[in-house]
Write a protein that binds this DNA or RNA. Structure first.
Lengths: 248, 248
DNA sequence: ACCTGAACACCGTTCAAGT
DNA sequence: ACCTGAACACCGTTCAAGT
């Protein structure tokens, strides 16, 4: 019987652009963005590094494609929400953005590389066009909807930069396994407001909160605040803003 | 008379960490972040690449230091505003954030590297502690002020990710020097909401607006919306929120 | 104390060449 | 059409060595 050569790497499927991108997303998910190099990706799909250049123009193109995959997932996750029977624009937008966020929590490296992309892909355009449609049907003028996109910014796609990562504290010097409360007291003279806030928000036990916040709760707090502010502005202006067709 | 050796590179000053960081900031300002390599930075200060490692632990440490310089500039720019006689917290916070933004407009590469830093420096802590103090004196509870920091996010330091860079459009394929209006019409079927918005917001002449927005105006619109939303929440809660000391 | 030369392991990428 | 080997120009970084 004929032997399948190198049975562990299944060289049957002839490697397509789509498979390259899928593998790249998987690598970044598991090993982080720095682990995604042309050479390591090639090894992952069982090929030499230079073979990738047949399916991908260069690394920039690879990253574009990888973002395309992620935004595709977002669009898929978001599409179901659009068809709901609810009429309130605020609820629909809220649900969509929270759904997008769920996707990005599976690809925590994606926001960082999204921000480096210059070319806006058709899928991103699709996402924003749909969002814009929701705002328009919700009674927003084009002018205000345009502002809304800017206010939401990256939050529209489901992510925000975290304030502090649960990684390091900027306060003390020696505290490795020490008592967190002692550290807060120690930095109370340098940063009294922060120390006081941590002490109070963490209900007197800073060990639970220091360097860590409930990101989901904070994300929703911010999102609701912004949506409420947008609604107030929509209701303030009847239809069109001032200075609409003033200049040529 | 004794000859100063290699007069163009003034090797008099023996090169300090501070000078290295200053040179690094200057390089990034002029040539962008990719131009800032250990080798090119060394050449800039008139030294071999390996000499930098005497003043800087590694490139990560260099980037930390470079951010330290930028945040130092922000703190300097912001300090003047604190001492004003105005009492309105919203005005003071607004002025501070807009001043921080002015600094970052001179270092457009800085936000990108800030987001990659994990360790929060004392200067960033200083900035947030001062901001927190302003909120507290403005009548915010610690809990709400904590939320406020999250809502503001990176905007507190004066920057937001831009929605679209004036770089590329995701719509057409062939339009290089073509009429912008024709391009909008062309993509009207794929992205009708975007096309309609661009047409209207640009007052019928999309050539002026396509791929470009007034970032200063959008930044202030978002900032004002957020500050207004925060104020409404401050006025809604008397002092402390519900569920304050419930759990152990 | 401050700087250097040579070397290492790693990138992305080109190009002519294989099947 | 799809893949490869060898090579290039560039990284950050180490280490023993110079003054």
């Amino acid at each position: 019987m004929a032997v399948e050569r190198s049975a562990n790497r299944e060289p049957r499927i002839p490697l397509t652009r789509h498979r390259v991108l899928q593998a790249a997303v998987g690598m970044a998910d598991r090993g982080g963005l720095p682990s995604l190099t042309m050479r390591s990706l090639a090894a992952e799909v069982g090929v030499e590094a230079m073979s990738l250049y047949y399916h991908v123009a260069n690394k920039d193109d690879l990253l574009d494609g990888v973002i395309e995959v992620v935004v595709g997932e977002i669009n898929d996750a978001v599409r179901e929400i659009d068809g709901a029977d609810g009429e309130d624009w605020k609820q629909v937008v809220r649900q969509r953005i929270l759904a997008a966020r769920q996707v990005l929590l599976r690809h925590p490296w994606a926001p960082g590389v999204m921000e480096t992309r210059t070319t806006s892909s058709p899928l991103v355009m699709r996402y924003y066009d749909d969002l814009l449609g929701l705002l328009r049907r919700g009674g927003f003028s084009n002018d205000l909807a345009h502002h809304a996109l800017h206010v939401l910014g990256s939050r529209a796609l489901g992510f925000t930069q975290e304030l502090f990562e649960p990684d390091d504290n900027g306060g003390g010097d020696g505290g490795d396994g020490e008592d967190a409360a002692a550290m807060v007291v120690q930095m109370a003279d340098q940063f009294p407001n922060i120390a006081g806030m941590v002490m109070e928000v963490s209900h007197g036990d800073p060990a639970n909160t220091l360097g860590w916040c409930d990101n989901q709760l904070e994300f929703e707090f911010a999102l609701d605040l912004i949506l409420e502010g947008l609604e107030r502005r929509r209701d303030a202006l009847p239809t069109g803003g001032p200075g609409d067709r003033a200049s040529a």
